[in-house]
Computed example of a mutant assay.
Amino acid sequence: MNLPNKLTVSRIVFIPFFIVTVYLSGRMGHLLSAGIFVLAAVTDWLDGYLARSRGQMTPFGKFLDPVADKLLVIAALMVLLAEQRIDIVVVLVLVAREIVVMALREFMAGKGGGVPVSQVGKWKTGVQMVAITMLLLGDALFGLPLQPVGLLLLYISALLAVWSAFLYVRSVWSHIIEGAV
């Protein structure tokens, strides 16, 4: 197992530790949960960078990387929802988008093709990671009220999610229609 794949696996391993720290009381819980989330999110960028720059892309990594990303983000959204820091509608939009895009990728893989990551999808991910971090921090960072900004960014990421899903569907629509006939 190469380093990029180890980093991808580490993102999954971080999830239980992240969830436990969310439920620690007070400022320390907010700081630790946000710190673990950021560390895990950085592995998302780092594993891809290392895999591409070192020529270490593997079928295992291509499969597990998006799964690890979705598990981390969905875990964060679920704990934020459970703590009533975010609204269920935005969670449903974000999770539905991930299901649609993963289904499109699976569909296209079955046809011997792929669905390339769009620039809008990359923006969605970046905005979403910053939003979740801010929501996890709440006001634990020097008393700054990060919750309202985090919520705004999460709603922006939901809009980007819908837009990127539309772009993905549009890019493979001819294959979808072809497969339906």
Rank of each mutant, 00 (worst) to 15 (best):
118 S>L: 08
109 A>Q: 09
82 A>N: 11
35 G>A: 10
15 I>W: 15
99 I>A: 15
91 V>Q: 03
18 F>L: 10
155 Y>D: 12
166 F>S: 05
181 V>K: 15
137 L>A: 12
41 A>W: 07
13 V>R: 01
72 L>F: 14
30 H>V: 08
22 V>G: 01
84 Q>W: 04
4 P>K: 13
140 A>S: 14
113 G>D: 13
163 W>T: 15
106 E>F: 06
49 Y>C: 08
93 V>G: 07
125 T>E: 00
47 D>T: 09
141 L>D: 04
96 A>M: 12
49 Y>V: 05
166 F>R: 07
135 L>A: 08
113 G>V: 02
110 G>P: 07
177 I>W: 06
50 L>C: 04
46 L>W: 11
142 F>K: 00
164 S>I: 11
71 L>W: 15
105 R>V: 00
148 P>L: 05
82 A>C: 00
122 K>F: 05
112 G>N: 09
82 A>M: 04
33 S>F: 09
48 G>K: 11
74 I>A: 12
167 L>G: 06
181 V>R: 14
87 D>I: 07
66 P>C: 09
96 A>V: 02
108 M>N: 09
95 V>N: 10
101 V>S: 12
107 F>K: 10
98 E>D: 15
133 T>M: 06
27 R>H: 12
61 G>Y: 02
142 F>L: 06
161 A>E: 03
125 T>H: 01
12 I>M: 14
157 S>A: 15
108 M>I: 09
61 G>E: 02
174 S>E: 13
43 T>V: 10
69 D>Q: 06
80 L>C: 03
8 T>V: 07
148 P>I: 01
84 Q>L: 07
20 V>P: 05
73 V>G: 04
118 S>K: 06
30 H>D: 14
32 L>K: 05
6 K>V: 10
